[in-house]
Design a protein around this nucleic acid. Sequence first.
DNA 1: TGATTCCCAATTGTTGACAATTAAGAATCA
DNA 2: TGATTCTTAATTGTCAACAATTGGGAATCA
Lengths: 232, 232
Amino acid sequence: MTMLGKVRPVERRSLETRATDALREAIIGRRYAPGDRLTETQLSELLGISRGTVRSALHKLLAEGLLAQRPYAAWEVVGLTRQDAWELFTLRSALEGLAAELVAEGLGDGRLAAAGIEAAFAALAAACDAGDGAAADEADFAFHKAVVAISGHGRLLTQYERVEAQLRMLIVVANEAPRATTRLVAEHRPLLEVLASGDGARAAAAFRAHARHAGEATLARMRVDAAARDRL
Amino acid sequence: MTMLGKVRPVERRSLETRATDALREAIIGRRYAPGDRLTETQLSELLGISRGTVRSALHKLLAEGLLAQRPYAAWEVVGLTRQDAWELFTLRSALEGLAAELVAEGLGDGRLAAAGIEAAFAALAAACDAGDGAAADEADFAFHKAVVAISGHGRLLTQYERVEAQLRMLIVVANEAPRATTRLVAEHRPLLEVLASGDGARAAAAFRAHARHAGEATLARMRVDAAARDRL
DNA sequence: TGATTCCCAATTGTTGACAATTAAGAATCA
DNA sequence: TGATTCTTAATTGTCAACAATTGGGAATCA
């Protein structure tokens, strides 16, 4: 008699880990807005765990750059300025450049790597064809992350995920308009090709340029939005 | 009557912050070796603070990549493999490339930036002239960090500091031989010049190449050391 | 009335006790 | 004897109480 499939593994992650994930998801999912204040007591009641455990989770999110701490006063969701946006886009550009270089040079299991990334690109194209802006944005994130993940560089992935989490907050702050989906595909297809070319330097340059371009577009939009607000 | 200078500000950092710094310094300073096990109770007695506060500090160092955690079993100082070394050097290359690009393009207060970096280079040259290998290594770290710090990119500096901390552990693991000090200066002078040239792309390429070169040298040394150990 | 001091509620910082888990050795059983 | 199951000491995970700090409003005073 085999037991395989009869039971599921129980949830082994610590309460702290689960609390961290729940809070991160809530912040990135905009259920808390930038500037919102989080109190340890309130969260401990909400999550049904002790204050100490909540506190530990908050510290983790502080390290991830999603929260700010004012000693003895408050935890609050970070509000991202244009300087922050600039930092995030330039940093993403550098990290993705490295990832692309590594993948192009075949350090990520060669053909297998290409297959995974091609799947991500296909998902992006499908979302664009369907005209689903939200799904396309999500597939956009997924495509870039897939490249980083397949690079086989653990620390790169960790740092990239940190940047990505903050970028997700930013994109909504900037109130991104649904982009022309055809352009989204057109901008990504060359990236796929340059990865397959095996030319690391060229791949790095292409990804850096792509990220910088996307960043400048969002920054411009933020400036327009800010100007509109000032005019109110 | 002025009170200026009569009293010093009291130490305002929390116990947790001070404990974190003390532990980080002890780990980077090799007072704990890679693989060493740290227990919360022992540290709380040593530091004279409660276990909860120690625990908080340990979590911070976990996020910084200096410690590893085995749930319910142990905290231990990370042991860096050659894969880790490769990750650290490639990551440093990407981060410094971005920093150099920003500095060269004058986003770091223009002339003032150059002044600060020139001072760091002068300190490096002085240490090399004096034939002080340890001081030269320290000045080497300081030079590169100065470039990052002056780039005006907060997140870049944070991530770079995380890489640097782990690199410091690695360098000692690799048991780095005192390099020819003249070569150290010769390798850095061009970096200084390319920063002053104002050509961001060229500066980025030069710093990336420099970091990659230094990384490959250390990796080669690690392979030699490992082979020597196997032969015992 | 204007500035200063005092007080208090809210919140985070710190602590020690208790619970859960691990790992290794002793005891048990085929 | 070999594998399996208990036992137990050590260690981390979680909790609730207490201390320290902050910010703002009330009370005080010139």
